[in-house]
């Protein structure tokens, strides 16, 4: 099982390396991510959102909805932990009461 997985993953590694040549090379100034969409953030962020920090501008304004989702994920995690572990506490207490 482990060996099969290992061989499979080595093949996958080969595939990843093989396909990596079609990705824009690191530090490429003209790569699609650098050339599409993001220039506006760099050029206009200060003017449009009043934020000097472009990451903050994108995070809290351009893509603020993602960040709401992200905060919600954190909140969900908190409530999830409560639901999972509070129920355990209650069970334990019941057990103790049973004895």
């Amino acid at each position: 099982m482990k060996k099969v997985a290992l061989i499979l993953l080595l093949l996958l590694a080969g595939l990843f390396i093989y396909t990596s040549f079609d990705l824009p090379p690191t530090n490429d100034l003209n790569s699609p991510p650098a050339a599409h969409v993001s220039p506006r953030y760099i050029e206009m962020a200060h003017e449009e959102t009043g934020a000097v920090n472009m990451v903050t501008a994108v995070l809290a304004d351009y893509r603020g909805y993602d960040t709401l989702g992200e905060t919600t994920v954190i909140f969900t995690a908190g409530i999830s932990c409560l639901l999972i572990l509070e129920a355990r506490r209650k069970q334990k207490r019941n057990k103790r009461g049973g004895r």
Binding site: G69, S80, I84
Partner: peptide, 19 residues
């Protein structure tokens, strides 16, 4: 954005199932 909401729904689902 789809990924973010996928994670919200998944996390909530994990917890609800675990309950």
């Amino acid at each position: 954005n789809l990924y973010v909401f996928l994670e919200i729904s998944s996390l909530a689902a994990y917890a609800l199932i675990a309950s």
